[in-house]
Design a binder for these strands. Structure first.
Lengths: 119, 119
DNA sequence: AATACTAGTATACTTTTGTATAGCATGTGA
DNA sequence: TCACATGCTATACAAAAGTATACTAGTATT
């Protein structure tokens, strides 16, 4: 079965649809993963740059979430052998492919901002 | 400023992009909200139907999450004055508009399934 | 010498999320 | 009458997520 027909099959069945959603959810779940990925869409970043970009995140959370994202193959960590050491984080190809997901979320967020605030 | 140029503006700025992502994230965050919404994409459902559709969810969690989704204007709850009472849950127009978000997540999930499992 | 930057870790804590189990009020079918 | 379905709520607890604060080691700046 090819990609597009697999997609069509899944869309027909609620149970399969939920499973596929969960596959994605397991990777991006939590308060901080999407903000981190969002920031990295704009290019490689160092630890402190991410910390400044993402309001209210603590170094503990940033460190923990970056490790999980690395484990899931979303983020690549590179240590440069300079003095002092420089560490850079960037999206892998899997990570970059999440951009589509992020963009539709941004569109939805903009459309429903007033709706959400006025609750 | 119109919709599409607002979107273009936001995409240019990492900070604004993160804010818009967070607006969406606040509504769909957690382990169960997307599965519930996914299930309701396939039509109105009763409490027990949702419980059966969504593997491993407990009635406590289902009840709690449905209330939050109702508060956020994603789900509408209707009680029918029959004997015995019948309660139905369905997506509002805001809820239905999340379908796009869900569908790109399904696509990503399918594409990256092996990648995720083979970690 | 004092201060600040980088890239984090350590400790302790609170809050949220989730699980397990039971129960209730109502009604239906065998 | 007994078990079962519906639509939940109650209680107790465990685990995960998140927060707050302090700290380290190395280097550079003032």
């Amino acid at each position: 079965m090819d990609k597009s027909s697999e997609l069509e099959q899944v869309k027909k069945c609620c149970g399969h649809f939920i499973l596929a959603v969960n596959d994605t959810l397991n990777v991006i779940n939590g308060k901080w993963k999407l903000p981190i990925i969002s920031s990295l869409i704009y290019g490689k970043k160092r630890f402190k740059e991410l910390e400044r970009d993402i309001a209210k995140i603590t170094p503990r959370m940033l460190s923990k979430e970056l490790k999980e994202l690395e484990l899931n193959g979303i983020v690549k960590r590179t240590v440069y052998d300079t003095i002092p050491v420089k560490v850079e984080y960037e999206l892998t190809s899997s990570g970059k492919s999440l951009k589509k997901v992020l963009e539709v979320m941004v569109e939805w967020g903009l459309e429903h901002r007033e709706n959400i605030i006025g609750k």
